[in-house]
Design a protein around this nucleic acid. Sequence first.
DNA 1: ATTATTTTGTGATATAACTCACATTTTAAT
DNA 2: ATTAAAATGTGAGTTATATCACAAAATAAT
Lengths: 225, 225
Amino acid sequence: MKNDCKICAIKSKAASKLSAEEIEKLSFSCALVKFRKGDSLIRQGTFSTNVAYLRSGLAKVHIAGPYHEQIVRIVNAPSYLGLPTTFGDKINQYSVTVIEAAEVCFIDINAFRYLLKANHDFSYEIMLELCRNELEVFHRCANRTQKQMRGKIADVLIELSERIYNSNIFYIPLTQEDLGNLVDSSRESVSRVLTEFEKDGIIRISGKKIEILNKKSLLMISAKG
Amino acid sequence: MKNDCKICAIKSKAASKLSAEEIEKLSFSCALVKFRKGDSLIRQGTFSTNVAYLRSGLAKVHIAGPYHEQIVRIVNAPSYLGLPTTFGDKINQYSVTVIEAAEVCFIDINAFRYLLKANHDFSYEIMLELCRNELEVFHRCANRTQKQMRGKIADVLIELSERIYNSNIFYIPLTQEDLGNLVDSSRESVSRVLTEFEKDGIIRISGKKIEILNKKSLLMISAKG
DNA sequence: ATTATTTTGTGATATAACTCACATTTTAAT
DNA sequence: ATTAAAATGTGAGTTATATCACAAAATAAT
């Protein structure tokens, strides 16, 4: 399985621009590992010397708040996790947990920095990703604080449907408790809104499966606040 | 005043690592401008081909929410503004407005990218700044959503005192309405908490001047949520 | 298959903060 | 200095959502 790393490196969005020598260097310090739902990739407060490259699957970034935990964002492959940590004081500022079976490649921070230095296209790409992250956090923050329940939940459903699954039907990998942590509200309120939406004919739920029947309504509810 | 740019470049945290040739290139595409309180540096929704380098002064980053505007973070010099825009689709995703007299240097995006390419230390520094921004937004987001009024206001006062002014006495450059937009609550609630704190002997207010008398209390209130 | 555990649905009650309203103070403009 | 405009203080009523409580359903474990 370790040999997969080279493939991993080559297949990664960064690698297409790498020289053979660079790939060689990367492959020595990279190990591909498979994870299941619930596994922890990064744990807030711990020391870290790796960047995690999420090659497939889905994960949630979450931080411990003064009261309850808070899910910061849902991350889909491909993306790099733990960048702030590796640039900064090496103490993880957030946790990352798998929510759908994932393949992850841990890249040693020194190899990662070598890559950044050696390959400008790569470092440019990382900057892009960091900028996107920042904007995404902005968006979620505005969502959390300026909308009320219906709007928040509508927004999350749209995000799952569009950004994560690209389909109007999907299996939601989060519990209602998770959803509450994602929009900063209680599990009960999430439940109430979800059944409300179903009664209004906006979505159809059966178990973990959600089907969006009326996206237009969802968009309106999300926009209205 | 235009010649200041070279000084600006040399004095900037990036420049110490630049070659003469690089500084030359930068100075051609850089103009230092002075701004007053209330001036707009970046306007959400507009097209932009510059990175703004805040050399001195204070600014607020804010976005238009579904209902009210929301202040995302307070930025002090030195720092780069508008990075996500220049990497992305060039449409500004947020506004930046001066809240204390500022000197700003607008760096053409092409020159900026040249710098990133030419100088790895510089691009590394930019990545650091992007990471810091992300973590700061995390923090503010948790603050907004998980604490109640007293905690939110305590947190902002601590931030102003520690990160921005480095003093227990400072002149607050924001109106209570601004503070409301910063912590996502109403102007009235801000006022109530502020007078409450004063009655409790935690702060002393006279006009725009705020003195923190009991930082320990503030820290406790902020931490408790 | 059966049991234990986790997740979900829904009512009743409590509460923090918003809104509205208006007086007062402060700041800016002429 | 005088007036206009903006910012602030504070009460009373309203409201969205949290919390508590428990039943039902679904999932996981033996």
